[in-house]
Amino acid sequence: MTIDTSVLNALRPDMTRFAYLLLRDQHAVEDVIQETMLTAIEKQDGFKNKSSLKTWLFSILRNKTIDALRRGKREVNISTLSNDEDDSFEEVLFNHHGAWNLETKPNAWSNPDASFEQKQFWSVFDACLNHLPAQTSRIFMMREFLEFEVEDICKELSLTTSNCWVILHRARTKLRLCLDTKWFSGQGFQASRS
């Protein structure tokens, strides 16, 4: 079958979002999108209708993005990782007994799954991801979007496993706080009567 380029172009915004979250460089993103498009057109015989075009295209994009991350590895300054953030985030959240502080104790989010249907939620979600320090976000994205195993991320970036866990924990905590402030607290949350 022949792939219509206008169909590919329609998927461009989503591909750009995806690549940008990982690469954070407009120029690198454009290169990756272009390579993905070219590969898709070149290998269109390999596309079977069994999977959707988007899934197929994203599997190409995923590989191209991983290649770009690897190519850019020399630019990844591991030493900036520790400077990305210190451990003080936990001191703010917990008291000296390790219990939640009164102001930071997490509240229940009301009906969070409904957010998936809301376009606005996704722009808040992207903003929160882009708000993470670059290296923290890259490791989080490698784990959650590229579905790397933690061991492979560590190997790739020469980090210890426990270091990776700490960084992923920080990323999730930051995202939790960001979504709480920018999305869920504005919803007029009411305590559930469960």
């Binding site: 229940a108 989010w109 969070p112 799954d113 995202l175 939790r176 979504l179």
Partner: peptide, 9 residues
């Protein structure tokens, strides 16, 4: 709540 939020993310 924290666990639900992390799983939601």
């Amino acid at each position: 709540n924290a666990r639900k939020q992390v799983n939601f993310i």
